[in-house]
Design a protein around this nucleic acid. Structure first.
Lengths: 149, 149
DNA sequence: TATTGTTATACTCTATAACTATA
DNA sequence: TATAGTTATAGAGTATAACAATA
């Protein structure tokens, strides 16, 4: 009934709805770690790329500079990140993740992977195989404008 | 390097990270419609199921009753939903979506599907085919505990 | 007394506008 | 003057606790 079936038979509305439902499921698990999506993404950014300017973080995460200022202040208050200075430019604030921040991210990933495993255990082998096969494609899909990259 | 490769060769951490990145990408597009994920999900719920009690909506969407009270107030203020009464029980508030709410959801789905199509156009045919093949499995994955259940 | 919903209060997260400090 | 960051203010969205109305 829809003209959305295109080149590869992919219905975008269906994919969008399916992804959104998964998002909501995963988001519900956000509570345990207490990290918002942006907070988690920022910590991951710092894990991967090392100390980073506040302005760059704001750009990477698609939030405004004031929003990032506040997020970093909360992370700092909670001991998950630290502000340092740039010796070569007095205006710059460099942000880095702390060991506690890294530990929290590790726990978070483990917990959410476990939850995802629980969800997947309700699927049959074939479905799981299909998702595994599509995973690299999904990674590329998210990576394109994913920011950070 | 990880013991996460299990039955079907599916790495849960990788899947979780990939979904989370996609999540952030789609969320960035939330602005155009101005609807939060919960607001959109609630309107969709009302579209599918018809008028619904405020308490049931709170349960469906996994938020507290006061949070749903406020969300419905915002939706009502914006003309997207309406409160009505239940003739058989004076305590009950029934919420229903308005034509404007339905129209907004239709626009939102079209816009986001279009954006998804744009993202997918950067992938090659094979990747798109793999995602199309996995879509029903992803739908089942999201549907399993989608909710409510 | 139990259920349904609202109000009060507080915190996160976001934005825009105005400001400070450094270059 | 331009750049980096903060502060001020406002609003969405969430939670818990206390309350009001109806059953």
């Amino acid at each position: 009934m829809s003209p959305a079936d295109l080149s590869a038979g992919l219905d975008y509305v269906r994919l969008h709805v399916a992804l959104e439902r998964l998002f909501r499921l995963l988001r519900r698990d956000t509570q345990p770690s207490g990290l918002s999506l942006t907070a988690a993404s920022t910590l991951r950014n710092l894990e991967l790329n090392g100390p980073r300017r506040l302005t760059d973080l704001a750009t990477d995460e698609s939030v405004t500079q004031p929003a990032m200022t506040q997020l970093v202040s909360r992370l700092e208050r909670d001991g998950l990140a630290e502000r340092t200075t740039d010796p070569t430019d007095g205006r710059v604030v460099l942000v880095r993740v702390t060991p506690a921040g890294i530990a929290l991210m590790q726990r978070r990933r483990a917990i959410r992977a476990q939850h995802l495993a629980g969800l997947l255990s309700t699927l049959n082998e074939e479905d799981e195989r299909l998702i595994a096969a599509a995973l690299p494609a999904l990674e590329r899909l998210g990576g394109v404008t994913g920011g950070i990259a």
